[in-house]
Each structure stands twice: as structure tokens, then as C-alpha cells.
């Protein structure tokens, strides 16, 4: 892990992002995870490794990787979450996030993106009756 140079977020920011994460997760039944940090190698590979590292929840996980240093963003969906969240919906959320990021608003971009992803995924349907 690289050495830290002061905390990038205030406690309030951290709480805000975790709350957005848990609200999105509880509203949709998917597992939302946000990683903010430097990227090692290709961003897609790194994001997929992070997604795989989520373990048992990874099929229904949505991983958002934000690399502020490289100015790159990657969203990875799993087997189940990709059925609820189309690549197009992810791209729309990504566009909205990068707009905030380019204005210097990391926290706002992340929370907006999570909200958009959660709205796009919609609510979990009750177990189908056959």
C-alpha cells in the first residue's frame, strides 16, 4: 500500500459515501462497492480483480473503481448484477460521475453515480412464483 499523504476525505465525506453505498445496496438488493485509489496496470484488469475479490457477493456486486490520479473510472458488474444493470446504464452513470470529477467534486460524483446506478437497477423483484 502506498504511504498516505493526509486523508483525502473528511469523516463526513467517508460517511456520505458509505451511506450512499449501503442505501444503493439495500434499495436494489445488489452489492455496491466503491474503490478510490491508484490503479496497478490496466484499469479494467485491476477493477475485475477487485470485483473478484468481493468473493461470494461478486455475482450480484457492482464495483466502481475511481482512480483520481489517472483520471479513470471503471464500473464492473457481475453475473447477476449485469442483468439488472445494462452497460448503457453504467456508461450513463460513468458519464455523470466524470463530469463531477472533472469539476473537482469526487464525493458528489461518487454519490450521484451510486444513485444513478441504483435507480437504473431498480428494486429487487420478489422471488418469482412458478
Amino acid at each position: 500500500m502506498p504511504s498516505g499523504n493526509g486523508e483525502p476525505f473528511t469523516e463526513g465525506h467517508v460517511r456520505e459515501i458509505s451511506r450512499s453505498c449501503s442505501i444503493a445496496s439495500s434499495e436494489t438488493g445488489l452489492h455496491y462497492s466503491v474503490y478510490v485509489g491508484a490503479v496497478e496496470g490496466e484499469i479494467r484488469d485491476h477493477a475485475e480483480r477487485l470485483h473478484a475479490a468481493l468473493g461470494a457477493v461478486s455475482p450480484r456486486a457492482v464495483l466502481v473503481l475511481v482512480a483520481p490520479g489517472d483520471r479513470q473510472l471503471e464500473i464492473v458488474t457481475g453475473k447477476d448484477s449485469s442483468r439488472r444493470l445494462s452497460d448503457r446504464a453504467c456508461a450513463l452513470a460513468a458519464l455523470s460521475m466524470t463530469t463531477s470529477f472533472s469539476g473537482g467534486d469526487l464525493v458528489g460524483g461518487i454519490t450521484t453515480g451510486l444513485r444513478m446506478l441504483s435507480e437504473a437497477a431498480g428494486r429487487e423483484l420478489p422471488a418469482a412464483r412458478h
Binding site: E7, H31, H46, E48, L50, A61
Partner: peptide, 25 residues
Amino acid sequence: HDPLWFGGPDDPDSALSSARPGATG
């Protein structure tokens, strides 16, 4: 800054060591 992982695994380092790209994405 140090990486921050919201909603990540309890032990990120060991979880990442076994994770391969393309396995779940």
C-alpha cells in the same frame, strides 16, 4: 493517498491475492 474501499471485503489484501481479472466481471 491510501486506497479507500467502501463495501469491500473484510481482508482486502488476502482477497486480492487470489483474485484474477475476468473471473467474475
